[in-house]
């Protein structure tokens, strides 16, 4: 057997192909309620575990700490605090973006969780950890049910 140093598989006898399949995902029991409330009523719903005193955002139908079934739904705020952020200069396929995008983890007020989303209305010089932000939703007609019904988070 031989071990050469060629690192380009296309120079050898090769085949190209994919692992293609199409998928339709459904968001589940808790996800369905969360996304419908966001899309139809502009509300951020969370679930609360009384024994752990923990409020889940995004909501879950069970508590991963104590394994209770969660059916206590609470309305959270559409505001939060930038917990951390980063500047993305490339898209997910590694292509350079014309403008860098600010990606942030936002702790949602009145919950113990948060959402990863884009920030808008702020440039990368002035964005700060600890900054108060508020969700900006898309026009009702453009909402499809999903996290992209939030267009971005902007300084509150």
């Amino acid at each position: 057997m031989s071990f050469d140093k060629n690192t380009n598989p296309l120079k050898l006898h090769h085949l190209v192909g994919d692992m293609e399949a199409d998928y339709i995902y459904t968001p589940g029991v808790a996800g369905d309620k969360f996304f419908k409330a966001l899309r139809d009523d502009e509300k951020f719903l969370a679930t609360h575990c009384e024994s752990c005193n923990h409020t889940y955002m995004p909501p879950r139908m069970y508590c991963e700490r104590c394994f209770s079934k969660l059916d206590k739904w609470v309305e959270a705020e559409s505001t939060g605090v930038v917990d951390t952020y980063s500047l993305a200069h490339e898209d997910r396929d590694g292509e350079k973006l014309a403008e860098p995008v600010i990606v942030a983890f936002i702790r949602i007020d009145k919950t113990d969780g948060g959402i990863i989303h884009q920030l808008g209305g702020v440039d990368h010089e002035s964005v700060k950890i600890g900054m108060k932000v508020k969700a900006v939703l898309k026009d009702k007609s453009k909402r499809t049910g999903g996290l992209n019904d939030i267009d971005h988070f902007a300084p509150a």
Partner: peptide, 19 residues
């Protein structure tokens, strides 16, 4: 053929019943 629950939620239901 299709259940409304996510895989996580299904895992929870089975695990919780076992516990």
């Amino acid at each position: 053929r299709r259940l409304k629950e996510t895989g996580k939620e299904l895992s929870y239901h089975a695990s919780k019943m076992a516990l």
